[in-house]
């Protein structure tokens, strides 16, 4: 075999190796992009699914959704709010575990994935609470009637950014019929945990 032919074979082999490495890298990248990022899965909120009336143990607090009512209007100590949609009130019992905490994340997610939060003053009566102290309070959210069926309430203690939080996820048990019931219902009255009565 001539020297030129020998060199050509060697270079061809080398080019093959290079091509193989490049293809392997490209393939690795494509596969890597398809796999969910490990950061995303660490940061995803940890959902604890529960039913109404059942205490949910989160890292910072124990939360129970005691009951759910709906109405077109809701009454605070200072104002009466009316809605073209539906107000959903959830009575909540909330007991922090080791440190003071508040119900920082309150959200309803409907079947379509739409997210609703507290929009009215007085819509979250759960105050900053001491550890071990059960606080009976309420949250009120405003939804369009078509969001009621299958909507879930999501409650957490750490604020609106849910990354790394654990959340209590409770099915509200509402359906299209509740939208009609709400039209004739009395105004909702949130529970107030502090009782203003002297000594």
């Amino acid at each position: 075999m001539s020297v030129a032919a020998e060199l050509a074979t060697r270079w061809a082999g080398r080019a093959g190796t290079i091509a193989f490495v490049l293809v392997a890298l490209a393939l690795g990248r494509v596969v890597g992009d398809q796999v969910p990022s490990p950061i995303d899965s660490y940061a995803r909120p940890h959902e604890v699914v529960a039913s109404q009336g059942r205490p949910v143990q989160l890292r910072a607090a124990t939360i129970t959704v005691d009951g759910v009512t709906v109405s077109r209007s809701f009454q605070t100590s200072s104002s009466l709010y009316e809605s073209p949609g539906i107000f959903v009130l959830a009575d909540v019992t909330f007991t922090p575990t080791l440190e003071d905490s508040a119900l920082g994340h309150v959200e309803i997610v409907d079947r379509q994935g739409r997210s609703f939060t507290v929009t009215r003053t007085g819509g979250n009566t759960c105050p900053l609470t001491a550890p071990g102290l059960p606080t009976r309070c309420s949250v009120v959210l405003e939804l369009p009637p078509d969001a009621l069926p299958g909507a879930t309430l999501r409650l957490g203690t750490d604020g609106t950014d849910t990354a790394y939080q654990d959340l209590a996820v409770v099915d509200l048990g509402l359906d299209a019929q509740d939208a009609q019931l709400a039209a004739d219902a009395e105004p909702l009255e949130p529970r107030e945990p502090l009782l203003e009565e002297g000594g």
């Binding site: 080791l98 003071d100 105050p127 900053l128 609470t129 001491a130 550890p131």
Partner: peptide, 15 residues
């Protein structure tokens, strides 16, 4: 004794 801690804050005192 259980390691629970509560801060001095005026709002939880209420009223």
């Amino acid at each position: 004794g259980l390691g629970r801690a509560t801060l001095y804050r005026t709002s939880p005192l209420g009223g």
